[in-house]
Design a protein around this nucleic acid. Sequence first.
DNA 1: ACCTGAACACCGTTCAAGT
DNA 2: ACCTGAACACCGTTCAAGT
Lengths: 213, 213
Amino acid sequence: MTTQTAVPKQRQAKPYHHGDLHHEILCAARQLLEENNIASLSLRAVAKMVGVSHTAPYRHFKDKESLLAGIAAVGFDELAAQMSEAVKLHPGDPAGQLQEAAHRYMRLVIGNPQCVQLMFGNVLPCDDTYPDLMASGDFAFDGLKNIIEEGQSLGIFKAEDVEIMALTAWSCIHGLALLFIGGHVEAAVSLPADIRTLTVAVTTTMLAGLKAG
Amino acid sequence: MTTQTAVPKQRQAKPYHHGDLHHEILCAARQLLEENNIASLSLRAVAKMVGVSHTAPYRHFKDKESLLAGIAAVGFDELAAQMSEAVKLHPGDPAGQLQEAAHRYMRLVIGNPQCVQLMFGNVLPCDDTYPDLMASGDFAFDGLKNIIEEGQSLGIFKAEDVEIMALTAWSCIHGLALLFIGGHVEAAVSLPADIRTLTVAVTTTMLAGLKAG
DNA sequence: ACCTGAACACCGTTCAAGT
DNA sequence: ACCTGAACACCGTTCAAGT
């Protein structure tokens, strides 16, 4: 009996259930979220998909809201990763970094529309209930500010308030992305509605406003 | 008995119930929507607030979704009204019209954040299930295009694609408004976070990009 | 015509109980 | 420690029945 108890726990064949239920619930919830909309995501459906009882998720998430916050946090992490990737791809070229970041922002939003609605749609509280939620968002915004500052020091961007210029750039592409996934761009623009063309056009106009006269 | 039946129906003291239950339900739903978030709006709570049974709303709205679409339609109507108001206030001054429209857009979004999330948050289907929903949105966008065209004919805006320029302007202010009500602007911008200042700054930059070189 | 009440299937959450 | 099943209050929706 003493030798049996020495066997490492994680090597036992599915002792009760999964090895990483936390992660599995998060993945299943993300998938179900994108399949329908955010209102019809049910904790019980997530549990059924993973194959556990409908009360099992409460071991890993305090709330339904807490699970939603977990999904949103993954989304913000991916957003921050895309932004730093855009910076790396165009060293010394702030305008190119901004264009690249815009395209990646659009691609991420269009690829995960419901997750984006969760991240930006006033579903989670803005206060510090979920501290790690906003952390990645702030990180992404810091990257944006760095791009603006580099452009200013190179003399190609106007020498105005960095935060406001960064916010302007963010607003532009964020607005386009959200209007697009809401179907409002297709309703408004008659001709091509090609995502890449639209992104280039909007970003170019925005850049023209940011650039030094 | 015959004289009694001649009394107009709407004068009888609350014969069964209200005179305009449709409108009352819509108003109560709007109020409850803004008090909490969109997920926790319940048809039964609306019915209780109005003072009817929880099945009465089904006489006036096919669905919960149909009620939500009704709320969103009111929002789009108000948006369109604000936009045409902005045009009237600054005749012959497209740049001023755009600034005015931006301020009114911001005010409306900040005043009814949950309604805006309903209008633009991928809650309702994009297809023609609710035809009058997008109609007001299109009307507002047409007004925006008219402003751009007037600016082009006056020679103060670039002579590029009107729809894309209008979409750029819309994206800018829409993005700022949605980031603001999501609490992301306060998290990002350190200093004033004054709405009017931000709106002027973002709109000015956007206008600089739209203007002819 | 317009509204009600019972009924059904679903949901989030809690809690004592199982291994 | 981790998971289950019964239980509770709530929800959207339907339908036969009331005035």
